[in-house]
Simulated assay, not measured.
Amino acid sequence: MEFTHLRAKQRSQIERLLASKTSVSKIATVVGVDRSTIYREIKRGKVNQKYNALASNERTLKRIAKSAANHPTKPKEIWPLVRHLLNQEWSPDEISARLRIAGSEENWSISHQTIYNWIRRTKSALNKKLRRYQLANVWKPAKSSYPAGRKSIRQRPKGALTREIAGHWEGDTIRGQSHHHCLLTLVERKSLYTKISPVLQKTAILVAAAVGKELNGLPALSLTLDNGCEFAHFKDMGLPVFFADPGRPRQRSRNENTNGLIRQYIPKRMRLKTLSRARIQHIEDRLNHRPRKTLGYKTPHEVLFNLTPNSVAFRT
């Protein structure tokens, strides 16, 4: 049965029947609708505890005018901005929220679903900019022994768990085509601020040196790592180091999630040796100036350095 709204004539009929103390069941039979429709109509159309057909009809017309089906289409000027931000690897959700926070003279408002629909409708190549989700790899125990003398993640200071204070980091390495080269990734737990450092030889000495270099000048109270043998020289990193339980990558969820974002720029089969320092810095800047949902759509840079969000990032 096709759905139709009650007409003004039917509402007047309901008002008259209610005034004559007619039961809801009989009113539904006379009007030709379900009894639940009458109950809903009476509830919506009450004025001073009494049903008013005229007031109910006016409210219905206002609801229809505000419905999504009657919204005007988005101005054409908004799409170049959306395209620009997608090209910076912002997700539709991040674009939608940041536009809402920043505001604009045009008072643009757009939902993330509208952006997805636009990409699908226009068959744009921008869909390649959207993040791809893959099944997580099954964890396998490392062949090498765990770093000796390591401290458990359960011994971390309370501030590292609550993320109330900046300075507690998570670290990991990601590999490319060759197992000899890697990238050291460090993520600050409160702000998600990210540092990336190339390591030409995946040795414990070089990894420890890279940690000290990348955290120099930044708040650094603790570091949580996985159990890879490349972190065997953790005592030379210059700050308290703790290790997650074997096979529990979720204990370093901030770092693991950020590594997934980095893979947007650096596929698993890429030769890391070909990456220039300028390219790595470019990726760092993209991540640190990208709004995050978990930060209330602020950027990691804004959170770490306690800056006020602004609309600079929207400039094309």
Rank of each mutant, 00 (worst) to 15 (best):
M1N: 06
M1W: 04
F3P: 14
R7P: 00
Q13N: 07
L17F: 02
L18W: 06
A19H: 14
T22M: 13
S25A: 15
S36R: 14
R44D: 15
G45Q: 06
Y51M: 05
A53L: 01
A53E: 10
R59A: 14
L61Y: 04
K62S: 15
I64P: 06
S67A: 08
A68Q: 11
A69Q: 12
P72R: 13
T73P: 09
P75I: 04
I78H: 07
V82A: 03
L86M: 13
I95P: 12
R98I: 00
L99Q: 01
L99M: 10
I101V: 15
E105I: 13
S109E: 12
I110N: 04
S111Y: 01
S111Q: 10
T114D: 06
T122E: 09
T122S: 10
K123R: 09
K123D: 14
V138S: 14
V138R: 07
K140Q: 11
K143S: 13
K143R: 15
P147Y: 01
A148Y: 04
G149S: 08
K151N: 07
I153V: 08
Q155D: 15
G167I: 10
E170T: 09
D172H: 04
I174P: 05
H180E: 14
H181S: 14
C182L: 13
C182W: 03
L183C: 06
L186V: 15
L192E: 15
L200Y: 05
L200C: 00
V207F: 06
A208T: 05
A210T: 01
L215V: 06
N216V: 04
L221G: 08
L223K: 03
D226F: 00
E230A: 02
P240M: 03
V241A: 02
F243L: 00
P246G: 01
P249I: 10
R250W: 12
R252W: 14
N255A: 11
T258R: 13
N259Q: 05
R263Y: 06
Q264T: 05
I266S: 10
I266W: 13
P267Y: 08
K268C: 09
S276Y: 05
R277W: 12
R279N: 09
R279P: 00
L287P: 08
N288E: 11
R290E: 04
T299P: 10
T299F: 03
F305Q: 07
F314R: 13
